[in-house]
């Protein structure tokens, strides 16, 4: 016996510990579940942490209305399999009610608008802890995020005023109206996620694996031709064509790009991820490239 754990076992043990701390110290948790790979892993870890009972808290999908049908189908399948309560916070409804105004630019993303619907749902359901699948390796401002991340009564994140996080002693003390975002996957990387998906034989939406689809190029990225993104009329450089692609991330369909790939299984994705030369967000998120501080600004306002 060497009494040693592999890195995946260590990461899993840490995440389970974090989720159980929340079960013990919070009254009304919820888990953000979009059907994407990180939230699928997060939900899987929640089932392990809650075992032998089922996941007792609801899952929340902040729905931009710009969805990939395969992802919605997967979301509903998982919710049904696990007997969960699904809450949907709809950005479309917020737009229809005039609570937020959509950017009229063709192809504009609704990512920023999600913040409103998310905060509203938190307030309405009086959630005091909201699990998210964000990882610190994703993006610069995420690298400074705590695992237990405090949000004031406006849902805001104050990067300079964060509570120090020592050992595995999490401080979830809060006043009414305040809440925490909980990030059990903080220390996981994209590669860890894929290795874990393979090891645990987790199902993911099929668009994470190579498939043929009609795409067009915009700003060096491949966007799927569909109801939420189409080539600008008369734009010669946005000529649609068929390609074999997969998605590295799955978000708002209007701004999430595919990458050319023939990886059809988790093992092949792992092999590709190990040698890829472009970061996950850099390859696939049109909205994060707008400015150096795009994510930092969104996070301060209360984004995921």
């Amino acid at each position: 016996m060497t009494y040693q754990l592999t890195h995946l076992d260590s990461l899993e043990a840490e995440s389970v510990h974090v989720i159980r701390e929340v079960l013990a110290e919070f009254e009304r948790p919820a888990l953000l579940f979009s059907g994407g790979k990180d939230s699928a892993v997060l939900l899987h870890l929640a089932t392990k942490a809650c075992w032998p009972h089922g996941v007792p808290f609801p899952v929340l999908h902040v729905d931009t209305g710009h969805n990939f049908p395969e992802v919605l189908a997967f979301r509903d399948r998982r919710v049904e399999q696990l007997g969960l309560r699904l809450l949907v916070a709809s950005v479309q409804e917020a737009i229809d009610r005039g609570e937020v105004v959509e950017d009229p630019t063709p192809g504009a993303s609704r990512n920023r608008l999600q913040t409103h619907s998310l905060l509203k749902a938190i307030e309405e359901h009086r959630f005091d802890a909201v699990f998210g699948g964000a990882r610190r390796d994703e993006e610069k401002s995420r690298a400074k995020e705590r695992i237990f991340s405090f949000r004031d009564e406006f849902g805001q994140w104050d990067p300079r005023g964060q509570r120090p996080e020592l050992w595995n002693l999490y401080n979830g003390r809060r006043r009414p109206g305040e809440h925490f975002r909980i990030f059990p996957l903080s220390n996981w990387t994209e590669l860890d996620i894929w290795q874990y998906v393979e090891r645990e034989r987790l199902e993911l939406p099929p668009i994470y694996f190579a498939h043929r689809r009609e795409v067009f190029r915009r700003g060096g990225m491949l966007l799927a031709v569909g109801p939420h993104a189409r080539p600008r009329e008369g734009a010669l450089d946005e000529e649609p064509f068929f390609a074999t692609v997969r998605y590295r991330t799955v978000g708002d369909a209007s701004c999430t790009a595919a990458v050319e790939s023939t990886a059809a299984t988790p093992a092949e994705v792992i092999a590709e991820t190990a040698v890829t030369r472009v970061s996950e967000r850099g390859a696939t998120r049109v909205d994060d490239r707008f400015s150096e501080a795009a994510m930092e600004d969104r996070k301060r306002e209360g984004y995921f």
Binding site: K140, A143, N187, T189, L191, E292
Partner: peptide
Amino acid sequence: DGLRAEREQGITIDVAHRYFATPRRKFI
């Protein structure tokens, strides 16, 4: 360098986490 405030002032204000791996170990 992480946050805008830091880049503007050329300082680091908080603990940041980085990840890398070699064939032998994963590092946090």
